[in-house]
Write a protein that binds this DNA or RNA. Structure first.
Lengths: 116, 116
DNA sequence: AATCTATGTCGCAAACTTACGTCATTTAAT
DNA sequence: ATTAAATGACGTAAGTTTGCGACATAGATT
């Protein structure tokens, strides 16, 4: 997505694509769900929950952190990760707007094979 | 040393990731928006609207088609593409469920630096 | 038939992602 | 002070995506 041609698209399109990309790996979906399932920010060994090495999970965490979807606070030896629910809410709205735009279009109906 | 990672990713997580991946490029977001903006299924030269070569656009179209997010009907010389609004609606629901799960978690608040 | 047009397919190069082992750093426990 | 634990950074190998020109194909048009 950071390919050369990216610049030509609207900021909105790039924004949506960037977040979509963050969710484009089951590990990152799983990480977010895991963080959501805990009342407290969980330390980094989310790795124990996932079929991936700690290093790889750490990398996925950094990726989510780079977009600010999650935050990490160092607390002694461990790192406390947590969801940025505010951002996630805004992202949710963006996705919803996109999907509504897409699903309310008067394009071909569900079954008919596109009678244009 | 490898951790004991027995838990593979759920079907649900993979599903979400797969769709997210389809939206993970601004060109594909743009294609969907473009199809939504037309009352009628538009032929393949969506390429004229995008800062990409026809070949590349065709490739993105195939990718969306592989997930059945869009459909293409051959109509003589041209191909009629259209959104699969039914699927998009279901996908929207999936994303919404995910985001609600993520945003209603009692994790760290927006401003406080994660007081765990 | 010869040609034109709209499309998809193929193969390639460059860029990016994924996954993981090893290492350095930081903090806690002995 | 030494050792142990948790973690991110670094390097790197394998795989995937992106982007495109050249080629192939299949209806239209002449």
């Amino acid at each position: 997505m950071t390919y050369a041609k990216t610049a030509a698209f609207t900021h909105e399109q790039q924004q949506l694509a960037r977040v979509a990309k963050a969710l484009a790996h089951p590990a990152r979906v799983a990480i977010i769900q895991f963080l959501a399932s805990k009342q407290t920010c969980i330390s980094g060994d989310i790795a124990a929950e996932l079929p991936l090495s700690r290093t790889t999970v750490s990398q996925h965490l950094q990726e989510l952190k780079a977009l600010d979807l999650i935050r990490g606070e160092i607390d002694g030896l461990t790192v406390c990760y947590c969801l940025n629910t505010e951002l996630l809410q805004r992202v949710h709205q963006q996705f919803t707007a996109f999907f509504i735009e897409a699903t309310t279009s008067p394009a071909c109906g569900p079954a008919d094979a596109c009678g244009c």
